[in-house]
């Protein structure tokens, strides 16, 4: 009760500008990361589902590496190792690149599963109309399989957003990093973590609501 009694709203208010900057940085890295994860997942998922030689094996290797190592290790790798081989990246770049690569791997699996769930007979219906194999992908496999992949890819996007909080370790001033440094200087730990919890809940809820709306619009009207 002591903690609650000593909770100071004014303290959060005083730091609002810094927190707002952090929030914006979180959204920036998330937006790029999610966009990139979408494109990577789409392209590599299609390559995997169609078993395109070499490219498919490379994509599988990428997915395995990312899925089977902790994301923190991946972040450190990008942040500490890449500069040694001459690729030096700003914290912001490390932030969106890291979550994009992570989300892209999971999304590759989401889309692969979605595309593979499209019955061969539907693809043949596309071919029979005179679509080339690539146009059959664009007009049949993508719209149908993409819808099947939607729920699982949504979960990946939400994880991408939450994972941006790890960019604290590379000094990217996203929401978590900002809150962390404020409480480190002021010892207002409870206020700051309360802000974080509420902010992430709100963001994820908003994102979910947005995506559910999209999902409802795109939902396949029947089981295949």
């Amino acid at each position: 009760m002591d903690i609650l009694a000593s909770f100071e709203w004014s303290f959060i208010w005083e730091n609002r500008e810094e927190l707002w900057e952090g929030f914006k940085n979180t959204m920036k890295a998330s937006a790029i990361g999610i966009g990139g994860a979408f494109v990577i997942g789409l392209v590599l998922g299609a390559i995997r589902a169609h078993r395109i030689p070499v490219a498919s094996q490379l994509a599988a290797t990428y997915v395995e590496i990312i899925r089977n190592t902790p994301i923190l290790v991946q972040i450190f790798f990008i942040f500490y190792f890449l500069p040694r081989v001459g690729v030096s990246l700003e914290p912001f770049t490390v932030a969106w690149v890291a979550v994009m690569i992570w989300g892209g791997a999971f999304n590759t699996e989401n889309f692969r599963a979605g595309f593979e769930a499209v019955p061969q007979r539907l693809r043949e219906a596309g071919l029979a109309l005179g679509f080339s194999p690539f146009k059959t992908f664009l007009n049949v496999t993508l719209p149908v399989g993409g819808r099947i992949a939607l729920p699982s890819s949504i979960n990946t996007y939400i994880s991408v957003l939450k994972n941006t909080s790890l960019m604290l370790v590379v000094g990217y001033a996203e929401l978590t990093a900002v809150a962390y440094s404020i409480q480190a200087n002021t010892f207002r730990t409870f206020e700051m973590f309360a802000v974080l919890a509420v902010a992430y809940l709100a963001i994820v809820w908003m994102l979910s609501a947005l995506i559910r709306l999209l999902e409802a619009r795109l939902r396949l009207p029947e089981a295949l």
Partner: peptide, 17 residues
């Protein structure tokens, strides 16, 4: 060639979306 040949299957294979 396929553009000029129509085919109808046992399973109707309409595009569900």
């Amino acid at each position: 060639v396929r553009q000029r040949i129509g085919i109808v299957f046992q399973q109707f294979n309409l595009f569900p979306h």
